[in-house]
Design a protein around this nucleic acid. Sequence first.
DNA 1: CGGGCAGGTGGACAACCTGACCACCTGCCC
DNA 2: GGGCAGGTGGTCAGGTTGTCCACCTGCCCG
Lengths: 161, 161
Amino acid sequence: MTSSHHTLDDLDRRLLALFAARPRLGVLEASRQLKVARGTVQARLDRLTAAGVITGWGPEISPEALGYGVTAFVSLEIDQALRQRITAHLERIPQVLECWTVTGNGDLWCRLVARSNADLQDVINVLVADPGILRTSTVIGLSTEIAMRTQPLVQHREPRR
Amino acid sequence: MTSSHHTLDDLDRRLLALFAARPRLGVLEASRQLKVARGTVQARLDRLTAAGVITGWGPEISPEALGYGVTAFVSLEIDQALRQRITAHLERIPQVLECWTVTGNGDLWCRLVARSNADLQDVINVLVADPGILRTSTVIGLSTEIAMRTQPLVQHREPRR
DNA sequence: CGGGCAGGTGGACAACCTGACCACCTGCCC
DNA sequence: GGGCAGGTGGTCAGGTTGTCCACCTGCCCG
């Protein structure tokens, strides 16, 4: 959006790669592996966090391991005047993992999970209960070809500007 | 998919909520806040990890903070015979953050990021360079209504089965 | 040119946490 | 009644953290 973004240097990239590979590493151990002073690692981490590059260290949860083996992507065509209320409605549905407003006919785009295809139908029923939702179209995720990743981006060096 | 999934009990839920809120917490501090023995927290964490519920503790990176302020979702219609080669091609593009095979006309579904709309065009050009890609349709993410989340799912108690 | 400043280094400290044990208790299934 | 998984408190040595410090370097700026 704005151009005020953080530019990574080489050490940042190595740091992020290291912590991505072994996240529970302590600062001291990391400094040893990167061959820099401990304070440096600490300062880099603080700066990356302050800049918003690192947004968290939370445990990543696998919905699949919890029994939610079905993922679906739903496009919603909605009554624009009611968007706020609709997103509030979606927020209240735990199976809605993500939601964007997007360009195109589908005004809203969501990621859902469910325990089975039958369960998915139930979830969608809950979802479309809001009368502000005019039309939906669902595609089901069959297999993950590339799992959510950011490392390639982090390691990527923009050739020119 | 398979029904062999881990069922969370109340302590698991509280544990996950706590670590989601303050991930860098030590095991000892967590045990104090949850009012259980340290060994218990340790054991739970180990079990959740072994069960695949917790898949990692990696730092979460914000592409936006790195200057990739534009997100787009692309549906690709492809020559099925070439799917393997195509996904390999996509894997090599850092701006492709995620990719699924899905039902429907769009055989492949990807999430992209780019530095700007103009940059997005460049990324898409790289993407469609593979002749196995027959048709694409792109929608641009305008705003995040619900950011990727799993906590509601974790805290959710299935009413009945 | 010299000053100021951000950022790196290596070292020091006490306080604290971790991993690995242990003995023991409880609830539950067979 | 036995066996077992899982919880509880406790101990221990060793490693790690947060916080200082003095000092060095490169760089921008008047």
